[in-house]
Amino acid sequence: MTYTKPIKVLIVDDHQIVIDGIRSLLKTSHDIHIVGEALHGKEALDILATKEVDIIILDIEMPIMGGIEVTKIVKEKYPDTRVLILTMYDTLEFVQQATEIGADGYILKNKGAEELEQALQTLAKGDEYYGKEANKTLRTGVRKKKKGDQDKIQLTKREREVLQLIAEGNTTPQIAKKLFIAHSTVETHRRNLIEKTQVEHSTKGLIKYAIQNDYIK
């Protein structure tokens, strides 16, 4: 998915001051166009029914309808709309719920404009973006359900390197830079890893597989 026009964003948070803050953070970006705002999930769904939205920035805990329920509905009714969870919570319960229902990204509110914009750009390109804190929380939880070594699949040295970097929260451009390979080569390794491991949910599934099979400490 390649965007040649501004990314249409809907901001959903039950605090107007947070919405205003996000607007302020993104106002200098010519690649991002905020098409609406909502104070709860029901209002967000009403907007989605009338406007084209590329990415919805979504808080988790809100009145009337929270972010988890909204994400489920968005993924069912608007599969082309990507969901970025923006929250103060990095608890295992919330991060796991987000991954299981198909949220495309998860970052914390204590981060600045740089990570928010990076997450939006990453989602717009079709990738997933889970911040380092969310990745750490997920790794801690998955380790508790660790599989035996008998389930481990044979991977090449380069596939193991790519898998480890994915599990550490690196994006395709970051992996390409660290391994001195082309973006397309990273994507090829990613596809091969998904095919070999038979994981679901792409990046999130690969992260779980990497932790369960000791490819990341």
Rank of each mutant, 00 (worst) to 15 (best):
M1I: 11
T2E: 03
Y3H: 11
I7R: 02
I7T: 02
V9C: 01
D13Y: 01
D14C: 00
V18F: 01
V18L: 05
L25K: 11
H30L: 07
V35T: 14
G36Q: 09
E37N: 14
A38W: 04
H40F: 14
K42C: 03
E43S: 13
D46G: 10
D46V: 10
E52K: 15
D54C: 09
D54P: 10
L58H: 13
I60L: 15
M65N: 13
G67P: 11
E69M: 09
T71C: 08
K75A: 05
D80H: 15
R82N: 12
M88R: 13
Q96L: 14
Q97T: 09
T99L: 15
E100V: 11
G102A: 01
I107P: 00
G112P: 02
G112V: 02
A113Q: 10
E115R: 01
L116R: 13
L116T: 05
L120Q: 06
A124E: 08
A124D: 09
N135Q: 12
L138N: 06
G141R: 06
K146L: 05
K147G: 02
K147Y: 07
G148S: 10
G148A: 05
Q154W: 08
T156F: 00
L163T: 05
P173C: 00
A176Q: 04
L179R: 02
F180D: 15
F180K: 11
A182N: 04
A182D: 10
H189E: 11
N192E: 15
K196S: 12
Q198P: 06
V199E: 14
E200D: 14
E200M: 09
L206R: 10
Y209G: 01
Q212Y: 02
Q212I: 01
D214I: 07
